[in-house]
Design a protein around this nucleic acid. Structure first.
Lengths: 220, 220
DNA sequence: GTCTATACGTAGATAGAC
DNA sequence: GTCTATCTACGTATAGAC
């Protein structure tokens, strides 16, 4: 039996967690400089201040690092959107619903543009041999469900046709925003969210969605 | 002065071109198996039946191979769409215009899904250190112009509002389709164009575009 | 134009001492 | 838990003979 105080295991676990966090933060920094596919464990080790083999105490492989960056990215984006939803006030009109969907979509895209490394992993497949685990992908599905329930609320209020909350509509909305992210990251990577050629299309794309699903239509 | 017949240089140039084509075709095959970022010149050489150094007689670097695949991809896609435009008959109604935009967009996305390696290079940035040359990018701009002029025709016929042919509208349309391509390639890479979860959204996305820019609107 | 040989560097991962 | 040492392998690219 050990003579160490009972608190020791907790301290150890905490330090270990800190090491894991530092490795991941550093890995993201490296990827930001060389592209997601160019991650290099030697460089990560150098910056963290350890030798490459030490990294294997925390991650069994390079793929495991990718998977954790991917998973944390989706968790953070999900939390970012949930926080937006909490902060957003209630919606009282069709126009308010449109504004709300615009702002929510902007929050979604903004996070991606401001976290380009994570976004590359989340929206592209830039790393040969790396496929995210299903668990890591779960928050992406949760986010889709969140969008669906927001739209369902607008439908219930009579501001959108029922079809607006169906799978295809939700997916179309997500797909359009992922197009914005993808085009912005690949064609104009140096621009920020506020001055991007593609991010500025968000209100327009939302208007298209609303015009199509609006209940105030003269066409069948 | 050489004693060879004057026709010789042509033959040599033709054989050289055939070698270049074979290298590119093989490189695309390899990338299809390992991902665009995983291209490996040794494997290309092995399949072509030469030693790796011989490849350098045809391409000065690995990046040059990427750039040529990228450039040919855009040229082929441009030609694919021009052929579609030639084959498509004249449009006589707003409904016909909608169908035409649907079919053209589908042709665009279909090519990308059926050429996933090229599409990865054209719509993502999967290769660390590779940025396409401006010349290679030119057909992408030509394609955008092609879309713009199609939409301008619909505007001139009175089927769409003038804004439908403005830069933001054209870019929004392109962006939505690139979202379809990106999502399909990353989330459901094994599906074909005809059974994809995302490719099926094309008609819906086109309807959104048309509903927004239609002249038959009861809203200002 | 293709080859052999090799430079030159990197990279991920493991064994075993401390 | 970190280190040294090393493995093993790959991969791009070049030099120079044929």
């Amino acid at each position: 039996m050990s003579a160490e105080p009972a608190v020791e295991p907790d301290r150890r676990a905490r330090r270990r967690q800190e090491s894991i966090d530092e490795i991941l933060t550093t890995a993201v920094e490296v990827m930001a400089e060389v592209g997601a596919g160019g991650l290099n464990l030697g460089e990560v080790a150098r910056r963290v201040g350890v030798r490459p083999p030490s990294l294997y105490q925390y991650f069994p492989s390079k793929s495991a690092i990718y998977d954790e960056v991917f998973a944390r990215g989706w968790r953070e984006l999900e939390e970012h959107i949930r926080a937006f939803d909490r902060a957003a006030g209630p919606v009282h009109s069709a126009g308010g619903a449109r504004d709300r969907l615009r702002a929510g979509s902007a929050a979604f895209v903004r996070w991606a543009i401001e976290h380009p490394v994570q976004a590359q992993l989340m929206f592209w497949r830039p790393v040969p041999g790396f496929e995210p685990s299903p668990e890591a992908f779960a928050p992406a599905l949760a986010l889709m469900e969140l969008t669906r329930s927001t739209l369902a609320g607008f439908v219930a209020a009579g501001w959108l046709r029922p079809e607006a909350a169906e799978d295809d509509a939700v997916r179309a909305q997500t797909t359009a925003m992922s197009g914005v992210i993808s085009q912005q990251l690949s064609n104009e990577p140096a621009a920020g969210f506020d001055d991007g050629l593609y991010t500025r299309l968000i209100p327009l794309l939302i208007d298209m969605f609303f015009d199509h699903y609006s209940t105030r239509k003269d066409r069948p």
